[in-house]
Amino acid sequence: HNGKLCKLKGIAPLQLGKCNITGWLLGNPECDSLLPARSWSYIVETPNSENGACYPGDLIDYEELREQLSSVSSLERFEIFPKESSWPNHTFNGVTVSCSHRGKSSFYRNLLWLTKKGDSYPKLTNSYVNNKGKEVLVLWGVHHPSSSDEQQSLYSNGNAYVSVASSNYNRRFTPEIAARPKVRDQHGRMNYYWTLLEPGDTIIFEATGNLIAPWYAFALSRGFESGIITSNASMHECNTKCQTPQGAINSNLPFQNIHPVTIGECPKYVRSTKLRMVTGLRNIPSIQYRGLFGAIAGFIEGGWTGMIDGWYGYHHQNEQGSGYAADQKSTQNAINGITNKVNSVIEKMNTQFTAVGKEFNNLEKRMENLNKKVDDGFLDIWTYNAELLVLLENERTLDFHDLNVKNLYEKVKSQLKNNAKEIGNGCFEFYHKCDNECMESVRNGTYDYPKYSEESKLNREKIDGVKLESMGVYQILAIYSTVASSLVLLVSLGAISFWMCSNGSLQCRICI
């Protein structure tokens, strides 16, 4: 991952900044910058967002509201009850120091605090018919004063009620008058409520006091790749198909172990950190130390980045220098085999997901714990399936590479015959000098055995068991695999060879 928040398929997220979902939807004055928000790819909250409900109280069923919003990608904020005409018999300019803005008392931008007009609070009834052709999110509140005197001074009615009804919602609220500790300079409380109004449905408000009335509502448009994440990451000019709280993932790998919460087309989250597919040879310690064997393909974004291909070729060293050249036929066979294998694994496992966190309130801790156990169970199954699949494929890959290298080895052996000696570690020792032209003939299969047989015969008789390297004779190393990324691999195959001279070296080696 890149540690950044990015656009998702070209669409920017909605960053709530210092506000949370509650503050944004109710219209906390400190969240005025969010009022123009219309569309987004996903919503970003920060872990310690401080601006929620400015007048103390709870947004009821907040967790369910977050779940609903996680599939919303755009909205239209509109005046559901026009301020100047909807409440002619009531005062609608209630403000509070708890919702101060720029040093002055204020109130929510989407709600109206209705109080008595003169000395009376006549029963009010108002309704709205949803003609938007889509779901409408309606929010309101109920004020709970701290004393009967406060109730009387604001609403005149000691036994007030609030009723809200639609086809799918029907509740009646009565204020709970009680002494409470002071929070944000208030002994009173406000509880906030919401409902989704279906197209064509009607919502009716009736009250004799204590109503925090809707002013603006939201017509919602769903987008199934949307979601809500909690993150401290910063926004950058970048684009992605998959976003996590820790950063964007741009990967076609089937798995990731970065974060379980994802938005967009994302690899499946697994616990494993070692889900690797081999593309090189079986481990040979001396070669492995030099980083030549054991190439791997990573299938977990965050564990290993991208696929690494092994390729086969020849390396030689003689009086004229040293050089490398790919054996294109065996390399292409290996590439085709690995590509098919990788595609097979991805096809089997690479279903892209959006995974969002589930919200539970403080009273639902047991449910949250149960949900976590269920999620953990599914996660263990996914991890096991992934590891088992790759384990089985790896064994076949190792066998496949062994065969490829063996074929190259036999190709060289059949040409050199007794003009060189096998020394048991995949290397041959020449009994004759071999210049670049000679080396090329070994690589392309045109090695002239009779041409060098007499010199080889004489050297075999002279050496008589002495280690060949100390006599200045020449080696050919018969097994060799270097490691390159897919891009470098293609470039390498396009070149005939490249040279690395070893000044004054008397050794001649050709490596497979």
Score class of each variant (00 low, 15 high):
residue 232 N to D: 11
residue 233 A to R: 15
residue 233 A to T: 12
residue 235 M to G: 05
residue 236 H to A: 13
residue 237 E to T: 13
residue 242 C to F: 02
residue 243 Q to G: 06
residue 245 P to D: 04
residue 259 H to L: 00
residue 261 V to I: 12
residue 265 E to L: 09
residue 266 C to R: 07
residue 271 R to S: 06
residue 272 S to P: 01
residue 274 K to S: 14
residue 275 L to V: 06
residue 277 M to R: 09
residue 277 M to G: 06
residue 285 P to I: 04
residue 287 I to G: 00
residue 287 I to D: 00
residue 287 I to P: 05
residue 295 A to W: 08
residue 297 A to H: 10
residue 298 G to Y: 05
residue 301 E to S: 08
residue 301 E to T: 08
residue 301 E to C: 07
residue 305 T to Q: 04
residue 309 D to K: 08
residue 310 G to D: 06
residue 315 H to I: 01
residue 316 H to F: 14
residue 317 Q to E: 14
residue 326 A to G: 04
residue 327 D to A: 06
residue 328 Q to K: 12
residue 332 Q to V: 04
residue 335 I to P: 01
residue 335 I to N: 04
residue 335 I to F: 13
residue 336 N to V: 08
residue 342 V to M: 12
residue 343 N to Q: 10
residue 345 V to C: 12
residue 346 I to F: 05
residue 349 M to H: 00
residue 351 T to Q: 13
residue 357 G to M: 04
residue 358 K to Q: 13
residue 358 K to Y: 12
residue 363 L to Y: 11
residue 365 K to I: 07
residue 369 N to R: 06
residue 371 N to V: 05
residue 372 K to P: 03
residue 374 V to W: 09
residue 374 V to T: 12
residue 375 D to R: 05
residue 379 L to C: 08
residue 382 W to R: 08
residue 383 T to M: 11
residue 386 A to D: 04
residue 387 E to S: 14
residue 388 L to E: 08
residue 389 L to M: 07
residue 390 V to K: 14
residue 392 L to D: 03
residue 395 E to S: 13
residue 398 L to D: 01
residue 398 L to E: 09
residue 401 H to W: 06
residue 401 H to F: 06
residue 403 L to I: 14
residue 404 N to E: 04
residue 404 N to G: 03
residue 412 V to S: 11
residue 412 V to L: 13
residue 413 K to Q: 10
residue 414 S to T: 13
residue 414 S to E: 12
residue 420 A to R: 07
residue 420 A to D: 00
residue 422 E to R: 05
residue 426 G to W: 11
residue 432 H to L: 11
residue 434 C to R: 13
residue 435 D to I: 03
residue 437 E to Y: 03
residue 442 V to F: 01
residue 442 V to M: 08
residue 443 R to H: 03
residue 445 G to W: 06
residue 446 T to I: 15
residue 446 T to C: 11
residue 449 Y to G: 13
residue 450 P to G: 09
residue 450 P to E: 14
residue 451 K to W: 02
residue 454 E to G: 13
residue 455 E to W: 12
residue 460 R to A: 11
residue 462 K to M: 13
residue 467 K to W: 00
residue 470 S to W: 01
residue 471 M to A: 12
residue 478 A to N: 04
residue 484 A to W: 01
residue 496 I to G: 05
residue 497 S to E: 01
residue 499 W to E: 05
residue 506 L to W: 09
residue 512 I to F: 04
